[in-house]
Design a protein around this nucleic acid. Structure first.
Lengths: 236, 236
DNA sequence: CGTGTCGTTGAGTATCATCAAACGGAGTGG
DNA sequence: CCACTCCGTTTGATGATACTCAACGACACG
């Protein structure tokens, strides 16, 4: 279970500059913050932040760790609809007077800032910087969802997996290892594949020398080879 | 090709109450509108409103007809990421300083209102009603995209197709025909299936008496039967 | 009456899911 | 320290699902 360890302090928040409060002046932050009751949640891996159908009273900002947003069918088949990284805002369905539309579950040990939607709404209406930041974040959400729809609807298994890996490792120097963070099952839930297909392709690519894996970390050794093999049509 | 037939008149706009200007008072509309240069586009079916990668200078409101937003892979495989109905707002990527992330193409003869993003942004910052309406619309976009991700990633062909049909016919009385509007190919592009699989299942269901089709219109005769056959796991 | 587009249907096949078994590392308890 | 379980992963064998290729019919349009 997650639990609250205290009140948040925006001014000293380590990820403030990646959050929706990034462009807010310190003066505004100081003057507004006194009426603003944030809580910091610390979570282990696999903690549930909220579930689909619950009334949406809080928005959240991820300070540290990773969170997955998922939806499920009655028989248990699950789709990950988004993976949240440091600074991401989520759980804002209440702004549209709707219940949460997905489950939010931690993938790793995480620290999450909880913001009451009511106060956040007030703050937003009074500070254009926050407003702009939230708008930008929503539009980015939409764009990323559209990109994922193309991945899920149009691509074949190896293409999905390869572009997932390439995106995951994006911006890294060659020879830089990165924690994969996701289990085979979670990669499957994200890409609409089974554990086995994910495992098979990764094993293939390991044998072909495109990637290496070690204790949950991964490195793309030969991205060109990977692209040629998995994305013949230039899809990655 | 689409072409401009004139300037929009918000006050007399037939779909104003379904648009982001729904809750704006007539006074505000009157006073603000003079600096606001909207254009009305009339389009045949299959007209391109904008394409992915173009700079996003305008947002659009669909007044009449249907529009599909699509993304494509280099080899031509296409995914429909959203289908727009009367009153829907689209093309707002520019608010996040981004180019259009998808193509916008009419599916039927359509009438579209073009709004310069710069003026819309101003209007939004001055009128909370518009602001709220746009926020709500974005959040709805995100929620619907999440729902589609579950459709595409987790469901099998007959489940996808059945829930598409049920959603398309949602809210209709029994014995009410509705135009299907989409070709087999477009249904395929929406659900991540081929023309042939779409056609096969529809033929099956026609033979089983679940649906009837006539000159591009459709009716669900036996939604219970359809659900049982296509969505055994309660997925529709 | 051709021509083109869209939809249907069939046959064959590739892809990916399913089922099943075994492996390896982490953690536990004797 | 070893045996044990547990969990995630790997690998193999098999099969169903949905794709591909192809032919044909229906309909609209010039």
């Amino acid at each position: 279970m997650s639990h609250i360890i205290g009140k948040g302090h925006c001014l000293t928040c380590p990820i403030r500059y990646r959050s929706i409060f990034a462009n807010l002046s310190e003066e505004t932050l100081k003057s507004e913050i006194k009426d603003f009751h944030t809580s910091i949640l610390t979570c282990r891996s696999n903690d549930i932040i909220y579930e689909q159908g619950e009334p949406s009273k809080y928005a959240y900002t991820l300070r540290n760790g990773l969170v997955k947003l998922t939806k499920s069918l009655p028989d248990g088949r699950t789709q990950i609809v988004r993976i949240l990284k440091k600074g991401d805002l989520f759980g804002f369905d209440g702004f549209a007077k709707e219940d949460y539309n997905h489950n939010a579950i931690t993938i790793s040990q995480s620290e999450i800032c909880r913001l009451p939607l009511s106060s956040l709404g007030l703050l937003r209406s009074k500070n254009t910087e926050i407003d702009t930041a939230m708008m930008t974040s929503w539009i980015k959400n939409i764009r990323e969802a559209e990109d994922m729809l193309l991945e899920l609807g149009a691509k074949k298994a190896p293409e999905k997996l390869a572009s997932f890996l390439l995106k995951w490792c994006e911006g890294l120097d060659d020879r830089d290892w990165i924690k994969l963070e996701l289990s085979r099952s979670e990669i499957g839930d994200l890409l609409g594949l089974t554990i086995e297909t994910v495992s098979r392709f990764l094993s293939d690519w390991r044998r072909l020398g495109f990637i290496e894996e070690l204790k949950g970390s991964i490195i793309i050794v030969d991205s060109k080879g990977l692209k040629e093999k998995a994305c013949s049509s230039g899809s990655c």
